[in-house]
Design a protein around this nucleic acid. Sequence first.
DNA 1: AAACCCTGCAACCGCTCTTAC
DNA 2: GGTAAGAGCGGTTGCAGGGTT
Length: 408
Amino acid sequence: MGRSPCCEKVGLKKGPWTPEEDQKLLAYIEEHGHGSWRALPGKAGDVYRLFLANYICSLQRCGKSCRLRWTNYLRPDIKRGKFNLQEEQTIIQLHALLGNRWSAIATHLPKRTDNEIKNYWNTHLKKRLTKMGIDPVTHKPKSDTLSSVDGQCKNEANLSHMAQWESARLEAEARLVRESKLRSNSFQHQLGSSGSARVSVLAQLQNKMAAPLAAPPCLDVLKAWHGVWPKSAKGGVGAGDLESPTSTLSFSEIALSMPAVGFGENSAAVIEFVRNPGTCEGGLVVKEECEVEWKGLEKSTHFPEFKERTENSMSFTSGLHDMPFPVEGSWISESLRTGNGHEHVSNFIEGFTDLLLDNSDDRNSSDSSEDSDNADGSGGDHIYEENKNYWNDILNLVNSSSFDSPVF
DNA sequence: AAACCCTGCAACCGCTCTTAC
DNA sequence: GGTAAGAGCGGTTGCAGGGTT
């Protein structure tokens, strides 16, 4: 462990780059190339020495600064300028799933750097979501914090959704850790000129859907996760204190299990959103060919009446595991392209587009409609449906579009 | 016209992880 | 196995430019 030599210590230049410096750096890279510096053993040292040589000659910048300038600004495959609506939606949805993992998000946005995405999130999207009444951290409506009888019901529904998604996210992260090790060698040559060795979290997730279940790695959070898995497989209970380092939720209060994204090979895995008709709570049910149902909430002490699926159940098949690696192409949802039974995604996008374009009025009207809903006692249904669709659509979009990721 | 405020973004900082020795 | 240094990442800062008073 150690830090790179600080620019200050060796008197290197800091601050904005001048066009002359950019030219020098470009000239150097033209001559010596670039790429994943880690992926070029032996060369990385040469690169750094050359940077130092460059520094000695004229470019008084440390190697780290040069690398940043190249990766964030000078790279020819960088698309600059405003983010379009689809990119915005993608960022929001991936952020909901991955959190502040900008590099992972960037792998799904062609020609955008993690730094650019991060800046755009902090300066635009975060504020916009806040303005829309959505917590940018949890991606759930802030209005849920209103205290009321229905409010508690809504909170529980949202907590349930969040818990499920947090678990799914943790599972994806764990797979990234495990599978990136396994695949990094074979994937490196496929990674683009960005030179980044980053492996797509979502692609990993998707890959996992085509792979047999394996024991999770020895991450603490997954030890906890692993501990509940066998119980869940038998229709058992809950997750205990399964918490993410970045989670805003306390799983101990939710008590559910959520094997939502692990699927057996060649199985026709189905995720069903299940709701207890008597309350606002719900859960995901994963079904495979053998019809084993993962009713995570079934025996939860928090959801004692949770027994049956209702007409409110929402199911969607992954339908993806028999596909090879994604083909090159733009980041377009498979479901959007083909309309293969995922119409709700389109509806979601349209609705989201409306919100993005004009959120204040919508928000007001939505608030008022919530009030009226609450007044007749169905407010929980309204919020419940909104949130159910929101989170389910994120998963659906991710599932359907990860094959189009340009990373592979 | 000047001062102030706000916004956007490039760049830096500091940390962890990975790799080489 | 231990250590040093490179690579990568996320958070933060500081400045430039535009808008407002």
